[in-house]
Nucleic acid binder design. Structure first.
Lengths: 287, 287
DNA sequence: AATTACAGTGAAAATTTTTTTCATTTTTCA
DNA sequence: TGAAAAATGAAAAAAATTTTCACTGTAATT
């Protein structure tokens, strides 16, 4: 009966994360909403259609794509976002800032990204991802460029409890490995935009091999999230000196943390030993 | 035009304050709203009238008495009250926690780490580090294990503005590279504990070659920070399921962000071109 | 006690807004 | 290139809202 509980807030981050996956007409509306959320609250769907030069139906469909029953529900969720003062205090870095001020702003914006991500996080998807990972026979992490860092981190992290996990930044290695995947194997594909061609090819190959695919990306409705079995989204606002991709890295890493903790919780008994072994092995290398 | 800006939130307190001055039928409605605000959000005026046994008109008049233009505006304001921003309790992760609770706790603990780091951040050290990096002829980033991820990130990041930067996780590579360093070159050495022997050897070698060394570590007074010219510290509390090393990674990455932004600010003119070139190169690889 | 005035109420009409449908246009992919 | 799919907007249908108005009961006045 509470299945259709209304979720208040988290509306703007959600728009931000799907905006690239929207159609042209929808994007125009979405951008207007992002730019003028406070005005939109006071507009009817007809007025908003006029303002953005679109049709009511387009806006209605956008609301549904965002996960709301209709325009009214959307507006109620939007009201939640507007109420939080945190959203509006987005400070840009200023050339005159001292470095400790810069540090404050950068840290603040990281935290905002985390909070936004928390708002749109999909519990069911997380749950499934952890299930898959905990049961996986083998795990491959694919990520190029900035996302290679995340893939690498996954390798380090999950290796700690004795899982056969490898990370590949090189597209050729990715696709070779993907070809050898089997059911019960899991691929974690990381891409900020979710539109990297090489990565998509590798993911297709992995799926053809029967492996399950978990995507970590910033853009909902991206080609990657369409291909993946499970998609986990991390959002972050772009600021003048902090590109979107820059902010998203940290959020993606935080998502990996959550997966890690989730798997740890699910595997409590099995892993203790492996972790201890590694801890000892590292200690020897210390002064 | 904007004279009738919509006030969001503060709706329930307002009802409470006027409730005695309302008529009988209105009071019945007001009390229902106070008791079930979350339900009301999902009811139309007709449904609410049915539920409370009143008439639509009564509810409408109530909304106006409360200072709203009508029922819709009232509901939007109510949504603001219902919105509770991050009720995250900063406790340990519990085996019984749902994954969205886990996510909240993990994110919260990341943020705490960032805040703690902000408190101990040394502006002068940051300033010097940025100076060195901005003027560097060549940059090497050394980090093994979990810190290899950070080193990698540095490579990706600073490469973007055309700096000759390389990251090395392999101790042999580190020391080989260190042997070839020259004055005006900079080494960034990353180690959570600051006690990794191989890393210390490489750092000594780099110093012998005349290079400057910036350390990123979690432990003050570690052998690494004694060797380094400049030390940047990132703290993070260890929790039961989140090892100290795990939390520190994100903090170290955040410090890299600060360095990056700092260097960008210092080099505004020079870098624009390089960044644009890379952005274009990446765009081609996208669908 | 009867009359009047009037705030309170709700049924129903009028209006506005939202939602659905469907034909047209545009895009995509083979 | 041409068939299929997706996107779009006009307009119809449905739903929600706001407004109107007549009725009720109460209180004040004569």
């Amino acid at each position: 009966m509470d299945s259709e509980e209304q979720r208040i807030g988290g509306c703007l981050p959600r728009i931000r994360s799907v905006v690239t996956g929207l159609t042209k007409a929808e994007q125009k509306v979405a951008e207007y909403i992002l730019a003028n959320p406070a005005k939109v609250i006071n507009l009817s769907i007809t007025e908003l259609a006029e303002t953005t030069g679109g049709a009511e139906a387009t806006i209605f469909r956008l609301c549904q794509k965002l996960g709301y029953k209709g325009y009214q529900r959307f507006k109620i969720a939007l009201a939640g976002d507007l109420y939080t003062p945190a959203e509006s205090v987005c400070k840009e870095v200023d050339p005159g800032d001292s470095l400790s001020v810069v540090a404050g702003k950068v840290f603040q914006s990281i935290n905002e990204g985390l909070q936004d991500t928390l708002k749109i996080i999909n519990q069911a998807a997380l749950e499934q991802a952890v299930d898959l990972l905990a049961a996986a026979r083998r795990i491959d992490a694919y990520g190029s460029g900035g996302s290679a860092v995340i893939a690498n981190d996954i390798e380090h992290r999950f290796m700690r409890f004795g899982m056969p996990v490898r990370s590949y930044a090189d597209p050729h290695m990715q696709i070779s490995s993907a070809a050898l995947m089997e059911p019960e194997d899991v691929v974690i594909a990381i891409s900020h935009t979710g539109s990297n061609r090489d990565l998509l090819d590798s993911v297709k190959m992995a799926k053809a091999s029967g492996a399950k695919v978990i995507a970590i990306t910033s853009h909902m409705k991206s080609p990657l999230s369409k291909l993946a079995d499970i998609s986990l989204y991390g959002t972050a606002k772009e600021t003048e000196y902090r590109s979107e991709a820059m902010a998203s890295r940290l959020v993606h890493l935080a998502i990996v943390d959550v997966l890690y903790v989730g798997v740890v919780l699910r595997m409590q008994d099995r892993i203790g030993d492996n972790m201890e072994k590694i801890r000892q092995a590292i200690a020897v290398r210390r002064v």
